[in-house]
Design a protein around this nucleic acid. Structure first.
Lengths: 187, 187
DNA sequence: CTCATTTGAGACATGTATGTCGCAACATTG
DNA sequence: CAATGTTGCGACATACATGTCTCAAATGAG
């Protein structure tokens, strides 16, 4: 019956995804564990949130590593860059399903270390965006910093659309990617 | 020295925009009013949030009324529909500046009445989107319900971009609109 | 089986925000 | 000036989540 530390964190993540204000007691319940045991795993609620935030940044970093952003950016190959961009976004949509609440949680968004690390990851991403602009993949009339934010916004949109049942989960990835790349107007 | 009820709500709105978790005491301070007086204006913190949520929906509704969505939708005139779409989004961007925190606040997002009213306003908007699809302005391969969500996502993105100083306030409206309509890829 | 470890349950102290109240200072109006 | 109403201040009780602790039960390894 050993609830692994990972299991507990996972359960916490899932619950907080549904109810971002859940108490430690509620989280313990959701993890099938007593409040005391939860505290044996994690020092405080804030520490828990920060850890989950870190996890989501880990995942983000894993995505960047997985597609070898820097290398692809260095090639300057338009097709490759475009493929990587799409793969990244699709990956993010998947991740947002699990780590979604971290996108808007106040504690996480206010933590200095996490902010700093977010900045670094955004910088890595920006390298790809710059190369994409250079290669004629992305519009050059948009500021580099904006791309990351739009993607973020679309992730929030997709998450909310699914949450409210307006869009089927399996359709989200396509909708987000397609809207992001081509916009909503008729060609 | 009369701090009007409207003034107090406005101050609360501004503070909560910066710090969504602000306490009643902090809100009172920000409004230049004692905690007791704040409570003379509003029954509880939740009631305050709900009221601010209502305000933001009021503003949304005002926008819809202002451009006469239904009438324009009924004409089926592509140019007019497109103009109204743009005007709406630009208006929303402006509003998000003030009511922004309501976009992601848990209490507000969980309130039954507000959810219901949001639904009704989204329905009104959907009429315009449908007409826009019909008139060849909006893509027909995207589900009706999705348009509202993407717009919402872009608003969140713009808000965050400004908050982090990545984008100048005066540029947001154009970025949001342009990205929304045409996407991020080079034509 | 026995011992060591882990867990759950509950009690406990603490801290903090909330909402209420009374009173004194103040201004506003007549 | 007098009367009325509003405000700030501080006290108060309350509620609730948090984090710690203890002890008994369960688990698992040897």
């Amino acid at each position: 019956m050993g609830a692994d530390r990972t299991d507990v964190l996972g359960a916490a993540q899932r619950l907080l995804n549904r109810d971002p204000g859940a108490s430690m007691s509620a989280i313990a319940d959701a993890a099938g564990v007593s409040r005391a045991t939860l505290h044996r795993h994690v020092d405080s609620r804030d520490a828990l949130l920060v850890e989950l935030g870190t996890r989501s940044l880990d995942q983000w970093e894993r995505r960047l590593d997985g597609v070898a952003v820097e290398e692809v950016a260095a090639t300057g190959d338009a097709a490759a860059i475009r493929a990587v961009l799409e793969a990244l976004v699709l990956g993010y949509v998947d991740d947002a399903d699990d780590h979604g609440f971290a996108l808007t949680d106040h504690v996480i968004l206010a933590n200095a270390e996490l902010i700093e690390r977010t900045q670094r990851l955004a910088d890595r991403e920006a390298v790809l965006f710059a190369a994409a602009q250079e290669a004629g993949v992305l519009r050059t009339d948009l500021p580099l910093r904006w791309f990351g934010h739009t993607i973020y916004g679309q992730l929030v949109a997709g998450r909310e659309a699914v949450r409210l049942g307006d869009v089927a989960r399996r359709d989200v990835a396509h909708l987000v990617l397609s809207t992001l790349l081509a916009g909503v107007t008729s060609p």
